[in-house]
């Protein structure tokens, strides 16, 4: 298969970027999208040109590193998949593919398609944990947890922190990301203890970092590679409002 690629190139955070067009040829349909970029990059290196910088690591859809906006969709075509899980058979031979970095004020571009997602780390540092010391905990089976609760907690905990939710949201809102963590811990007795404090601290940090406000479009849920539901946003709202009303 042959493709024309329109790729956003930007030297560093300060430079102005622009699209550049490349051609790749003889790509097998079984090639993954990122392998296709590897092939392009190897060609660019041979031509003495700077290869396209893009984030990737595990290539199994779990590390959350890959972050491309392909043909107008976060992580490209395909439901419940990260960019690294997209295969070229999803495209038609001869397609022109536009590749952009995440666009969000809180995710500044570092180079080409690489953005800084440190804001997500900062939100979790504000309260996305259970304050337990190492080795000062009860037996694992001391508190039974209903299977349904553990399963729901796991649904939310599947978040890989890739940033697709904020990148796809027309409001640049990180609510799905924040909600996933808050909701996952809120469903477990271990996390409930600090539930109110956590919801307040994480929302405050999210607001402070310049993320937008959720208007319930559901675009985040549609683009989340882990299919995390906006029901968790409802739970975050509930947790936050209940906490605030008790203040």
């Amino acid at each position: 298969m042959n493709f024309t690629l329109k790729i956003w190139r930007q030297k560093d955070a300060k430079s102005k970027g622009a699209f550049e067009t490349y051609k790749v040829t003889d790509i097998s349909a079984d090639t993954s999208f990122l392998e296709m970029l590897d092939i392009l990059n190897n060609n660019l290196v041979h031509e003495g040109k700077d290869p396209v910088a893009f984030d990737h690591d595990c290539r199994e859809g779990i590390c959350g590193m890959c972050s491309l906006h392909i043909n107008g969709l976060a992580h490209g075509p395909g439901q419940n998949a990260t960019t690294c899980q997209i295969y070229m058979r999803k495209f038609k031979d001869g397609d022109t593919i536009t590749i952009e970095p995440w666009r969000s004020a809180a995710f500044p571009v570092i180079k080409d398609l690489v953005v800084n997602r440190g804001a997500y780390d900062q939100i979790l540092q504000a309260g996305g944990y259970v304050s337990v010391r190492t080795n000062s905990v009860p037996d694992a089976n001391a508190i039974p947890i209903p299977k349904a609760d553990a399963d729901e907690s796991m649904d939310a905990a599947a978040c890989v922190g890739c940033g697709a939710c904020a990148a796809t949201c027309k409001n640049g809102s990180a609510m799905l990301f924040v909600a996933a963590r808050v909701s996952s811990l809120a469903k477990l007795p271990q996390g409930r203890v600090e539930g109110a404090r956590r919801a307040k601290a994480m929302v405050a940090k999210m607001d402070e970092l310049g993320f937008g406000n959720c208007t319930n479009t559901g675009a985040c849920q549609a683009e989340c590679p882990k299919g995390i539901s906006i029901a968790h946003i409802a739970r975050l709202n509930r947790e936050f409002l209940a906490a605030k009303l008790q203040d």
Binding site: V132, T134, M154
Partner: peptide, 21 residues
């Protein structure tokens, strides 16, 4: 100890219907 620690941190391990791991 690891399993105890992780459960306390809020790791959602798979559970049986009785609520145990």
């Amino acid at each position: 100890l690891i399993i105890d620690q992780c459960v306390a941190q809020g790791v959602p391990f798979a559970r049986e219907y009785g609520g145990l791991l």
